[in-house]
Simulated assay, not measured.
Amino acid sequence: MRILKYLFDFYIQSSLHVALAVYALIRITFLKLNISYDESVAYFGFFGTIVGYNFIKYDELARIKKIKLTKTFKAIIVLSFISAIAAFYYFLELKTKTKLIGFGTLLLTILYTLPFFPHKSNMRNWSGLKIYLVAIAWVGVTVLLPVLNAEFDFSILVILKCIQRFILVFVLMLIFEIIDLQFDDLKLHTIPQKLGVKQTKRWSYLLTFIFFVLDFFKPNITNQQLLITFLVGLILITFTFFANSKRTKYYTSFWVESVPFIWLVFLLIFS
């Protein structure tokens, strides 16, 4: 039992779960836009997320707090190194204009983690900016990368998909901020810190409603697709409703981040 818990914790801490969530959203983009599956885009998103998230999570700890090199941390370093090689390989397989988006996401990750100016804090500590940066990065990787690499027409459908994806990630991040309210520095000025939990949840419900309504503006939308989007929205509302600072870390790091998997499963089953 202890071994299973260790493996599960490693799965979460090493960013494998969040990387699979990114992979699921890329697959969803392929399915929703009828784009042929592209291994280079999907795996670049997967391995790049492992590298990016582990860099964000552990760089400052390693540089400033000098954490001990435990077996788990060493394993995460090895996984990140292998993932970096794999991400670079699949990066080379991308088309030139797609590489620009991939490079832009990498640059955003670096600036998010390292100080932008000497003697200044990094972008992660800029008041209220974190949630928007994360949502924009996820839109770039999970929507723009597949669209550009497939040379798909940048139509109203793609624009709606970008807005919808931004809202999805934004709402998921709001849940994270509610859960982390008791730990976040007040200088971060997160949305729950500024608006309070109740008001933040009201905004989440409104954004989730918009997330669903956007489907009605898509050409040739089917009742089946509307139902799937409605179910995903219902799941978002449920997670938001039950979010509070007393929840365990697994509430967000596993269950909330599983929403993309659930969405993908719905599409695979009902499509």
Rank of each mutant, 00 (worst) to 15 (best):
Q164W: 04
I136C: 04
K120G: 03
T142Y: 05
N122C: 12
I85N: 03
N220G: 06
L69R: 04
G102K: 02
V139Q: 11
L25D: 06
L4Y: 01
F230T: 04
Q193Y: 11
F8W: 09
L226V: 12
K65R: 12
S15T: 01
K187L: 15
T238M: 13
I85S: 02
F239A: 04
K201N: 00
M1Q: 04
Y6H: 10
Y89M: 00
N122S: 11
I12C: 12
R202E: 03
L106M: 12
F154Q: 09
M123F: 15
G45L: 08
K249P: 00
I163T: 02
T109S: 11
I178V: 06
F166S: 07
D59E: 07
K99T: 00
G233L: 05
K161Y: 15
D215G: 13
L92M: 13
I64W: 07
N244F: 06
I82A: 09
I191H: 03
L16M: 04
T200L: 10
A75M: 07
L148S: 01
N34T: 14
Y37A: 15
L111N: 09
V158W: 13
F266I: 09
L168A: 10
A87G: 01
R27V: 13
G233A: 02
V259Y: 06
L61M: 12
A75P: 08
I56P: 10
K32Q: 15
A62F: 13
H189C: 15
K161P: 14
A243F: 00
L61F: 10
V259H: 05
K201L: 01
K246Q: 12
Q225F: 08
T208I: 00
L129Y: 13
F239E: 08
T105K: 04
L157A: 13
Q164D: 07
L107T: 11
L69D: 02
A87T: 01
F217Q: 06
S155L: 09
L133N: 10
V18R: 01
P118W: 03
H189T: 14
F47Q: 00
T240W: 00
F166D: 05
T98H: 05
V143L: 11
F270R: 09
K218D: 07
V169T: 15
L106F: 10
A86E: 06
M1D: 01
L92G: 01
T109K: 14
W126N: 12
Y37N: 13
F176H: 08
G128P: 05
Y23D: 03
K57A: 11
I175P: 04
K120C: 08
S253V: 01
F88I: 05
